[in-house]
Design a protein around this nucleic acid. Structure first.
Lengths: 233, 233
DNA sequence: CATCGGTCGATACACTGTATCGACAAGTAC
DNA sequence: GTACTTGTCGATACAGTGTATCGACCGATG
């Protein structure tokens, strides 16, 4: 009796579709599932319940692999660092590569912008890319390495955050740049019309507007130029 | 009968302590309460229910003044911008002042580090400090202003985030630097002992460790130097 | 076979942001 | 003055969160 399922005999009844043994759990699988959710619907869509459901598992099961949701987020960030592999010859190229690769990763995983810089990154992949960078900075003095790397990292974190924030705001107002300016424009126009921000109004209205790529690169060049000037002094 | 409170007559019974009319609500009062909560116990301690309780009001009342919690956070950030007043003569001093003032604000309101750069800042106070900065950048060409300001802002956002994140991590391991190194040291020691990160290990062990103030200023100097080189070219 | 010990995860808890809609107040018509 | 209509406001309720607790289960041991 307990074997009956909707009246069909075993012979007619198809096997349970796909996951008879849903593969043993592992941190890697958990993190992959979380990243998939975050990529698709943003960081807010990552809840332990949803991750567990995606893995066909009950939520508390996850606590055998992670101690808290924060740890899961840390693991996600470290997994993202695995995709950040700075390359190049000489300190300047390596730093530029680090910056571009980080930005690229944040474009593929927008949630990264919310997490970067939020807590110290000491996972193996983060350390590995740190190692690559530091190793390539032999030219600059030992004592100068940390401040230089810290400065570039700071710039990248902030620039990426701002860029992604802007991209989201645009998307929220209707997907393309036209609607964005149609929605934000009026507010800014009205605000500027008060005459309280004359300089700002002039710049926003008259200055050339660079796209995100150029803005990022120009700022990075400022920074790298400044570094070059100091270390070769 | 309905007037009796624990048997005391009106004459003996003190007036209800302080808030017979809890003052009419306003965005300002709401934001102030939220900031107080965030200053004391971090951003996670800011919930609409707690804010409402602090104002002696029921939660849904707040929705007459804000449309969502996100809006409240935006208002908090803009309120923080009110404390950021860049001053100085010449573009370099003004930019440095902007950077230091932002960092200072984040030291007084650590939650600011979690919010900065998270969404476009278009509130009146943010625009006001933007106006001050842009006005002081008349020397640099009109088309150069936006990239320059964006670069400095990006650096500050990232640097402050990292600094506050580190500060929190230290605090979490027991308040002072000794315990921090005692807790993180072993992990790093063990990791470095594997020999997988030789360059990193050398730098962490042998290089001079700058304090947060110096690290911030050096990075900022890199950037400002680079900007100066470009705009005077 | 009985009993013990330890692990694992279902249940339960305290809390979140906010949609809904009933109660109530103000205004209007008679 | 009374009845009805209209619109606002906020208490209640809902769907979700992270995770502490502790009962059930299972393997090993006497």
């Amino acid at each position: 009796m307990q074997c009956m399922v909707s009246g069909m005999l075993v012979w007619e009844r198809p096997e349970p579709p796909n996951r008879p043994v849903p593969a043993p759990l592992s941190r890697e699988r958990i993190v992959r599932a979380a990243i998939q959710l975050a990529d698709a619907d943003g960081l807010d869509a990552v809840s332990l319940r949803k991750v567990a459901t995606a893995l066909d598992v009950r939520p508390m099961r996850l606590y055998g692999y992670i101690a808290s949701k924060e740890e899961l987020l840390d693991l996600m960030v470290d997994a993202a660092h695995a995709e950040i592999r700075p390359v190049g010859d000489g300190w300047r190229e390596v730093l530029r590569s680090l910056a571009e690769a980080t930005r690229h990763a944040a474009h593929e995983h927008e949630w990264l912008a919310d997490l970067l810089g939020g807590r110290p990154q000491l996972g193996p992949h983060a350390l590995a890319s740190g190692e690559t960078v530091v190793a390539a900075l032999g030219d600059v003095g030992v004592d100068a390495i940390m401040p230089v790397v810290a400065a570039v990292n700071a710039y990248v974190i902030g620039a990426v955050r701002r860029e992604i924030a802007e991209r989201r705001a645009e998307r929220a107002t209707g997907m393309d740049e036209k609607r964005w300016q149609a929605s934000l424009g009026p507010y800014l126009e009205r605000t500027f019309a008060t005459g309280r921000f004359p300089a700002l109004a002039t710049v926003v209205r008259d200055a050339a507007h660079l796209d995100a790529d150029h803005t990022f690169r120009i700022g990075l060049d400022f920074l790298l130029d400044g570094i070059e000037a100091r270390i070769s002094r």
